[in-house]
Simulated scan of single mutants.
Amino acid sequence: MKAGAVLSVLCLVFPACYTTCQEVKVRPGQNATLECRGSSDLMISVVQWRKPDLKPDSYVFFYRKPHSYENYQHESFKGRVDLREPSMKDGDASVILRNVSISDTGTYECEIITSNTRSGERDVKEFKHSINLTVTDADGGDEAAGDKEGGGKVEVRAAVSVSAGLLISIIIVTAIVALINYRRHKSCWISSS
């Protein structure tokens, strides 16, 4: 069994071992859609879009029910970021970053806080998502091309977030347990014969 297959099986068994990471590539002056989606059956209370290299109290976009707050935005994003779906229908907290420039290149993080008040109890859940935005004026053909309205070509890949040491430890422990069980059963088979 190949290592990639083993890793895929482990990620199915332990779903917390991976997160999605989206790659978005656009050219300067275009719009970039930064996708983020929470649960479609829960009410969105808070949406926070951050860029880690900004000050901790600055946001790319900030929403707290019932509206967004531009005064929490970093100066470079004011007037350039809007929700793609203003009603956030079906948990869509994606934003459109307008008129991108090379300085917008970087990692963006979306955090959605939802609540379920239908059951009578307050049930809060968080959804986190990371996006790598690349703004380049290099001629990359169709791959780098976005569009003025739509937001660039999107490539989604699984980013493994489990350390290699943990993965190797799980494999080693499993192999040792299997070997011990084999030896016990083998000695039982030999002595009963």
Rank of each mutant, 00 (worst) to 15 (best):
P15D: 13
C36D: 02
S76L: 04
Q30F: 01
C21P: 03
F61Y: 15
C17Q: 13
E70F: 02
P28F: 06
T20K: 14
M43N: 01
F61H: 13
S68T: 04
C21K: 14
S45P: 00
Y63M: 09
V47R: 08
V26M: 05
P15G: 06
Q48I: 13
T20R: 15
V13M: 15
E35I: 10
Q30H: 07
I44N: 00
Q30P: 01
R27W: 06
S58K: 15
T19V: 13
V24Y: 00
F61E: 10
S39D: 10
Y18C: 12
G38M: 04
Y18N: 09
K51C: 11
L42Q: 05
L34Q: 01
R37C: 05
V46P: 00
K65Q: 09
V46A: 06
G38N: 03
K25M: 10
N71W: 05
F62S: 09
V46D: 04
R64H: 07
R37W: 11
R64L: 08
R64V: 12
V24P: 00
Y69V: 05
Q73W: 02
V47T: 11
V13K: 15
L54A: 12
R64P: 01
V26W: 03
T20Q: 12
G29W: 03
D41A: 00
F62D: 11
G29Y: 04
H74K: 02
T19E: 14
D53T: 15
R50N: 12
T20M: 14
T19K: 15
V60D: 01
P15C: 11
Q22E: 07
Q30R: 04
R50P: 11
S39H: 07
N31I: 03
S40Q: 07
Y59L: 10
E75Y: 04
